[in-house]
Simulated assay, not measured.
Amino acid sequence: MPDLRPMLATRGDHVPTGVEWLHEVKWDGMRVLAHLDGAGGLRLESRAGNVVTAAYPELAGLVDATAGRAAVLDGEVVAMVDGRPSFSVLAERIHERKPARAAALAAARPVTFVAFDLLALDGREVVERPLERRRRRLEGVLEVGGEGDHWLVPPTYADGPGLLDATREQGLEGIVSKRRGTAYRPGLRSRDWLKFPHRRRDSYVIGGWRPETGGRERIGAVLVGVPTPAGLLYRGRVGSGIGGRVGPGLQAALEPLARSTSPFADEVPRIDAAGTHWVEPTLVVDVEALGINGDPAASGARLRQPAYRGLRSDVTPDDLLPDDALPGAGA
């Protein structure tokens, strides 16, 4: 099967209109490529290229749903709660690889694979074909609607501004607008796909962690930054959302990454640096905030009222580099 990487969307300024655009719901989940080898094998790969098949045993039925054909499907793994995707529920499953535990979680909190593109079929890439043709082939290849299905092909819409309003009212993450006649550009970020999220949730890299107040060596906050060509720029301290069972797991992931010096390229304020355990900047987390004070691209900008939303094993720090620092930027 071809070696492919997901195409990435660029954050848009305004929702485009016109017949050359189609619009989809933006799903609050984990980007996954489903590789079906045509001989009964299924491999699920995250955006970072990690194999995550064991985490989602309920998706094994994709083999039968595609009639055993060799194919590569692009989509999002989501966990539905009351009819809406919940990334916090999905986060409990992302890192699970033990078969028994994964099966128990699949029974209790099943996921859905939302397939929105077809990249290869019967061993041949179809990425150069226009988006509309790929979507039609996808709808013909993936059988949906059966009892107990854990996959679907979502509808597309012609009215982007209307869909944006509807998803806001329904509490969904947002929309993605795509040019109908364009090819799929594996691994590249393009303005042929524009994303419009309602909530300001972004990914950041952890550069250190601070213990809880009171002298306990239990994690109370993380220090996060944004990668740039000049290095990791500090964006603030995030403590909200790390309590309960989240903290110990995050701390266990950070402790092996300990280092003696700050990984940030700019100066961390003394009040934040005091007592911080510095770590190698390799772990990516999602953070929600009310915005950023200052120029988002400059040193000194800070997140406003940030809250931790989960560890992203499917994203690497390189994935967070600015659009103009990525291959194919502006394509």
Results as ranks from 00 to 15, higher is better:
128 E>N: 07
25 V>P: 00
265 A>K: 05
154 P>F: 12
126 V>Y: 08
79 A>P: 01
285 V>W: 08
220 G>S: 13
205 V>G: 11
173 E>G: 02
111 V>A: 07
157 Y>H: 15
213 T>D: 09
169 E>A: 15
55 A>F: 07
326 L>S: 01
278 W>P: 07
110 P>C: 10
24 E>A: 09
174 G>Y: 04
247 G>M: 11
142 L>S: 00
266 D>I: 05
248 P>K: 06
95 H>K: 09
153 V>N: 08
294 G>E: 09
80 M>W: 03
209 W>G: 06
6 P>I: 03
105 L>H: 08
75 G>S: 11
220 G>Y: 05
42 L>E: 03
235 R>K: 13
153 V>F: 09
17 T>E: 12
77 V>A: 01
29 G>S: 06
21 W>A: 08
19 V>T: 12
189 R>C: 06
255 E>K: 14
177 S>P: 10
26 K>D: 10
249 G>T: 10
221 A>S: 15
45 E>S: 10
76 E>Q: 12
159 D>E: 14
181 G>M: 13
265 A>M: 02
18 G>H: 05
323 D>K: 00
198 H>F: 09
182 T>V: 14
69 R>G: 11
169 E>R: 14
304 R>F: 02
219 I>S: 09
114 V>D: 01
259 R>I: 12
48 A>M: 13
153 V>D: 04
38 G>I: 05
116 F>Y: 12
